[in-house]
Design a protein around this nucleic acid. Sequence first.
DNA 1: CGCCTAATTGACACCTCTCAAGATATGTGG
DNA 2: CCACATATCTTGAGAGGTGTCAATTAGGCG
Lengths: 247, 247
Amino acid sequence: MNSALHPSSLFRTATVIKWEDARRPRRAGEFFKGLSAKAMDDFESLAGHLCCPPATFLIKEDQEPISVMLVYEGEVNLRISSYAGKRFILGIAGPGEILGLASAISGTPYRIEAEARRLCSLAVLKRQDFLDFLMRHPTACQNVTRELSRQHTRTCERLRIVGLTSSATARLAQLLLGWCTEGRETGGGTEIRFLLSHGEIGECIGASRETVTRTLTDFKQRNLVEVNGSILTVPNQDALAVYAGIS
Amino acid sequence: MNSALHPSSLFRTATVIKWEDARRPRRAGEFFKGLSAKAMDDFESLAGHLCCPPATFLIKEDQEPISVMLVYEGEVNLRISSYAGKRFILGIAGPGEILGLASAISGTPYRIEAEARRLCSLAVLKRQDFLDFLMRHPTACQNVTRELSRQHTRTCERLRIVGLTSSATARLAQLLLGWCTEGRETGGGTEIRFLLSHGEIGECIGASRETVTRTLTDFKQRNLVEVNGSILTVPNQDALAVYAGIS
DNA sequence: CGCCTAATTGACACCTCTCAAGATATGTGG
DNA sequence: CCACATATCTTGAGAGGTGTCAATTAGGCG
């Protein structure tokens, strides 16, 4: 399961990789699916290897896509930001995902930011080498096309949240429901690993930090959600769906 | 130049096609770029032909992508809509564009609506035939991938407008500036062919019809825009950029 | 000429942002 | 273990902007 533009990575156990482990490429994720060993070797012969600490900016806006980066290990925030400093989180990229894929393909300047959330391990190769690689390996090209279509679908879903939903309450409910699809079902409801701050949640739905706090408090009082440390539980998704304006 | 998710089609002369002309496929647009005559014949042997009047729904939300549609001629509104009836215009598709491309590739249900703005001429083929065609013709596959990355970039730009810009004034200004890049430069400024109603503009930026009217009136009074029939002129893009919050 | 759609304008309520202050948690160093 | 620093969360009050409702006007088309 790919996690571009979607916080499925939130629900994985937060394994902190060690530097020595990070040096070993992980051939996980959508990109390597169905690739022959020969093709993988081909890829790794082209790619350099990069480890970076949390809060490293891997891509900045308006930057030319000279090189292409693929996540081996770790998590990367994908964002857009405005001149006024306002930021919007598109999603969180995990292993096997190519950062700024659309720009890498089209060659137009990046319109997103990518920032490591934790210690990350990445493959780095020249954009032209990447494009040539796709030409040599049709399977990889198909994977990339599928990945791109999935990213586009996810972005449209985010647009649905911020474009069609006027109230912050409904937006937060929709975001939580989206996360529930990746959560774990238990007797008491759906459990979500909850690693984002209120500020970051606000950046996901286009609301202020304070509004997120207030709305979440309201949800707790209505028993729509329960928070225990970094675990958020939704006892009844249908009840939450009422507030999402889906019913 | 492609116009998916972008109203560049607004700036083409509004030629109303006749039924007899519409029956003749037009091999225009991104999809056919660089394709051999043989490949084009291959495509047309697979494709049926469809003409439809304005306001025809070509795609509805949650529909399975069993068949794939390519626009030969005409204009098609691409939208998302909410259960509450609120709508958001993603863009306008023109000749050479494939409707709901992301869903067609991934096979997931359409998450958009497509509605003919005028008399349209379309190619229709089975999704599997389309995918097989892409496998046979790598050039077509590359065109599709490029098209997809462009659509994704455009969608991100829309997300930037509605997600990062809080005031309706700034959103409208940004929309107009985006259209200016496709407009015609004249002595008095940048001319834009203006075929959308205030209501539709509202659906582009997530604002109500009345707010568009008010904001546009305000812009006129400040000499930021001039409206003559269906021609909208921006005398000074820099002045408008101030209101867009870009400066 | 009348109908219908779209545009216009005003009044009002509601929601959310912003600013401000305080509380709670987490981490660091002595 | 404590003191301190930092980050995050919480809560309140006020102002501003936008949606909604309503009434009127303008324009297009048969």
